[in-house]
């Protein structure tokens, strides 16, 4: 339940951002990561960004997440 997934910020509109999660575009809330900018990578949990991470970290986590996600299917 504490799984968090990486995504890339495409657009910011106030508290909300459009992010790319492995090719899918979603709206998420970024009020917990006010420092996040367009182009940054963030970890998402339950519709909110919870931490800004770097690109390399995002790619590594994404791989791990895919593995974990497949395991749960």
């Amino acid at each position: 339940m504490c799984l968090a997934i990486p995504s890339k910020i495409l657009k910011i509109k106030g508290q909300m951002a459009e992010v790319d999660i492995g090719g899918n575009v979603k709206e998420v809330n970024i009020m917990l990561t006010p420092e996040a900018k367009v182009g940054d990578y963030v970890l998402l949990h339950a519709g909110y960004a919870i931490q800004v991470i770097d690109e390399k970290a995002a790619n590594e986590i994404f791989e791990a997440w895919e593995e974990a996600y497949n395991a749960l299917q």
Binding site: M1, C2, A4, L32, H45, A46, G47, Y48, I50
Partner: peptide, 8 residues
């Protein structure tokens, strides 16, 4: 939830 979820 734990501290991961509570801030949300």
């Amino acid at each position: 939830g734990f501290e991961t979820t509570t801030p949300v």
